[in-house]
Structures are given as C-alpha cells and as structure tokens.
C-alpha cells in the first residue's frame, strides 16, 4: 500500500451544505471516496491509500485537474483505492463533489 496526500488552495468554497458523502467501493479497479466538509473554505485536501504503488505523478495530475474543474473549497477527500484507472478516479471524485453540492437533509 502507498499513502499519498495532496493539498491545494481553492478559488472558492464548494457549494451546498452537505457535511459528508461517500461513493464507490474498494474493489479491483475501483475505489471509494469519502468527502467531508471539515476544512477552511480556501483549502482542499485529498488523502489516498492505494494498492497500486508508484503512480504518484498520475494522481498528482488527476487531482490538480479535479481541483481546477470543481474548486472544492473546504472539502477533505479520503480515498481507499483498489487500483482504479485514472478515468475512474476522476469520475468518483466528480460524483463525490456533486453529492456534496446537494443540500443536507
């Protein structure tokens, strides 16, 4: 297992009021993303535990694009990865961001 962590400054706070969301499942080629609204509005943190070691550069690029595209200020994303491909990672992050945009019930 490899642990990775990426911290980004964000342009704006993530929309919505939801405190917590989880999407995906830890399986071969898949991952789970837990999103929590626990950070200052200008920050975003992505912490990853991955079964596929040695892909730090790819993660770096995927997450930089995600933060640029969604500006998820205030959110911490925790990822358990079962060796997902970058397109699946992007999709799950986007799904998690969309869930957080919903208003909390």
């Amino acid at each position: 297992m490899e642990d990775l962590s990426f911290r980004h400054a964000t342009r704006q706070r993530a929309a919505g009021t939801k405190k917590l969301a989880v999407i995906g499942v830890v399986a071969s080629g898949n991952l789970e993303v837990l999103a929590e609204r626990v950070l200052p509005d200008s920050e975003c943190l992505v912490e990853i535990r991955t079964a596929a070691a040695g892909f730090g550069e790819v993660w770096d690029a995927v997450i930089a694009d995600f933060v640029k595209g969604y500006s998820p200020g205030g959110l911490r994303f925790s990822i358990n990865d079962g060796g997902a491909r970058p397109d699946t990672v992007s999709l799950r992050l986007a799904q998690a961001a969309r869930l957080m945009q919903e208003d909390d019930q």
Partner: peptide, 8 residues
C-alpha cells in the same frame, strides 16, 4: 477505447 486498458 478508454485511455487505460486492462491492468492499467
């Protein structure tokens, strides 16, 4: 196709 195939 997807940018990454089987086994990444």
């Amino acid at each position: 196709g997807e940018t990454f195939g089987e086994k990444n």
